[in-house]
């Protein structure tokens, strides 16, 4: 039951490869279609969720409002829950950035070289090469900035993936065969430990979503059902915050225990006050 996670700088081909893998493997797919279910569960407009996966708020917006982080956490929680269910191909939901440390997850990035992308832009939009180049540079920077702001990982860094396939000369069907072949390797078969790690990741995402609804600057790690929460608070409100976190997280199904680690942060507190 391996898990294949795709990322790409060419969305259409990413989708096509995912669909072909679904046919070949008979797997289930987790794609941006699930955003409507995130909407139903968390009452956030699908359009807003799709925008969250694309746009990075300014530093000021991020500091003053935790809504962007909250929306990301909602998507993450829903995606990871689905990844636990069965053989899955996941694409278009940035899972490569938050499904980390899961040995049965095969991460593949599908790309085209910049030169090819520029040629495509020139052909499709009828604009000069220099403008296409500038547009592409901005686009590449935008994606890099987004992935760093959202999950502190650079999605253009090849070391984030097991395989990066450039479709300039490699046929799309060949890429499907290669991915399919890799997914069948023993290393990508789930084992008890990797399933437990995924289950811990799912619980972390659930806890984080619950906490981010009413507070900011939350990091969560789960080890065997014990949840560690790392946050910042104003000195006088430290005890109050620890209690609030323990109350909220403790009610979540599957949580065996909660440890809260608070560090002092004046700016975090100011923004927290502004948000409340």
């Amino acid at each position: 039951m391996p898990l294949i996670i795709l990322s790409s700088n060419s969305k259409e081909e990413e989708k096509e490869i995912a669909k072909k893998l679904l046919q070949v493997k008979g797997y289930g797919g987790v794609d941006p279609g699930i955003l409507s279910e995130v909407e139903a569960k968390y009452h956030i407009d699908t359009g807003k969720l799709a925008e969250t996966l694309e746009q990075t708020p300014s530093f000021f917006e991020k500091m003053m409002s935790g809504k962007w982080q909250y929306r990301l956490a909602c998507i993450e929680a829903e995606v990871i829950e689905r990844l636990m269910k069965d053989n899955t191909v996941c694409w278009g939901l940035a899972a490569h950035l938050y499904v980390v440390g899961i040995s049965h997850a095969l991460k593949v990035r599908i790309i085209h070289a910049n030169q090819t992308r520029i040629e495509n832009i020139v052909e499709q939009q009828g604009i000069p090469v220099q403008r296409a180049q500038k547009w592409l540079d901005t686009e590449n920077q935008r994606r890099k900035k987004w992935s760093l702001a959202a999950f502190n990982r650079d999605e253009t860094d090849p070391s984030e993936y097991d395989l990066v396939i450039n479709l300039d000369q490699i046929d799309l069907n060949e890429a499907v065969l290669t991915i399919n072949g890799a997914a069948s390797y023993r290393k990508f078969q789930p084992i008890t430990y990797s399933m437990k790690s995924l289950s811990d990741l799912a619980l972390s995402a659930k806890v984080r979503t619950t906490l981010l609804k009413s507070m900011q600057d939350i990091r969560v790690q789960t080890i065997d059902g014990t949840v560690l929460v790392f946050t910042k608070a104003f000195k006088q409100k430290k005890i109050e915050k620890i209690k609030e976190i323990k109350d909220l997280a403790g009610k979540i199904e599957g949580v065996r225990g909660v440890e809260v680690h608070v560090t002092n942060n004046l700016f975090g507190d100011i923004s927290g006050n502004a948000n409340s």
Partner: peptide, 14 residues
């Protein structure tokens, strides 16, 4: 920059 290559393979799980 992985776009300079046709195939980038990470020796880890692979």
């Amino acid at each position: 920059d992985s776009s300079l290559y046709d195939l980038t393979i990470r020796i880890d799980k692979l």
